[in-house]
Amino acid sequence: MASPSNSASTQAKKIKLESADGVPFEVEEPVAMEMETVKLYFAGNEDAIEDTVMPLPNVLAEQMPAILDFYRKHLEFRKRYPLPPTEEVKAFDDAFLENKSNNQLKELIKAANYLNSKELLDFLTNAAANRIKNKSVEYVRAFFGVENDFTPKEEAKIRAENRWAFEGLDED
């Protein structure tokens, strides 16, 4: 029978994170360490993990559950499958994006970028690219919040010179 001290040491450490809007999150160490920013914050000071609250000034509480869910599930997949992606991984990823608005997707990209979470950032930027693929200039401008700085005459000239780029676009 394990002693109380042994069972406590076998439990996964929790890392305390605090979102930009002041919401605390206790995250399993393996999940938190998927985020390079968190890993670097605690590098060389692993003893401080359980006593320190790491602020995340560029991540809102609204984004954290999705980010944590993504990494929990992907860690599970990596443990179960030697070579993801499998159909199960693809199904999870599709469901993960299913109800995300363009604005939510962009906010998650900003959070993943701040957290230096390569796997999540690659996944989200690919999703954004898929959403704007074969769309009109107006759609892409609206998606990214870019104001048109061409005069109508300049834009007409560019469209005439590059007609091929405006053919066969999907409906917005």
Rank of each mutant, 00 (worst) to 15 (best):
125 T>W: 05
105 L>K: 00
143 F>M: 04
86 T>I: 04
110 K>C: 04
126 N>K: 15
135 K>P: 11
103 N>S: 11
136 S>V: 08
156 A>C: 06
137 V>E: 15
95 A>M: 00
144 F>M: 06
148 N>G: 06
101 S>N: 03
152 P>S: 06
107 E>M: 05
106 K>Y: 04
123 F>C: 14
120 L>M: 12
81 Y>W: 13
160 A>G: 10
99 N>R: 04
104 Q>E: 10
86 T>G: 03
148 N>P: 06
126 N>S: 15
118 K>H: 13
92 F>T: 00
143 F>P: 01
91 A>S: 08
106 K>P: 00
80 R>N: 15
139 Y>G: 08
129 A>H: 06
81 Y>G: 05
120 L>E: 09
104 Q>L: 01
108 L>N: 01
132 I>E: 08
115 L>R: 06
114 Y>P: 04
152 P>Q: 07
126 N>P: 03
103 N>E: 12
110 K>V: 02
81 Y>I: 11
137 V>Q: 15
94 D>S: 11
125 T>V: 13
151 T>L: 12
134 N>P: 08
156 A>F: 12
112 A>N: 02
93 D>L: 13
109 I>P: 01
88 E>Y: 01
85 P>R: 14
97 L>C: 09
105 L>W: 02
112 A>I: 01
155 E>W: 13
122 D>V: 11
130 N>A: 14
108 L>R: 03
134 N>G: 14
150 F>A: 12
153 K>I: 11
136 S>K: 10
95 A>T: 02
132 I>F: 09
104 Q>D: 09
128 A>L: 06
135 K>V: 10
158 I>Q: 08
138 E>C: 07
91 A>E: 11
146 V>K: 02
102 N>D: 12
91 A>T: 09
124 L>R: 05
110 K>G: 03
85 P>F: 08
143 F>C: 02
94 D>P: 04
93 D>H: 12
147 E>M: 05
95 A>K: 02
133 K>P: 10
120 L>C: 13
104 Q>S: 05
151 T>F: 12
122 D>C: 06
82 P>E: 07
135 K>F: 08
119 E>P: 11
140 V>K: 13
159 R>K: 14
121 L>F: 12
153 K>F: 09
116 N>G: 00
122 D>E: 14
147 E>V: 07
149 D>L: 06
126 N>E: 13
128 A>P: 03
136 S>N: 11
124 L>E: 05
146 V>G: 01
106 K>H: 01
160 A>C: 05
146 V>Y: 05
94 D>Q: 06
153 K>V: 13
154 E>M: 13
137 V>I: 14
121 L>N: 09
130 N>V: 05
121 L>Y: 07
153 K>L: 08
138 E>I: 07
158 I>K: 13
144 F>T: 04
134 N>F: 10
90 K>D: 11
96 F>K: 00
89 V>S: 03
127 A>P: 03
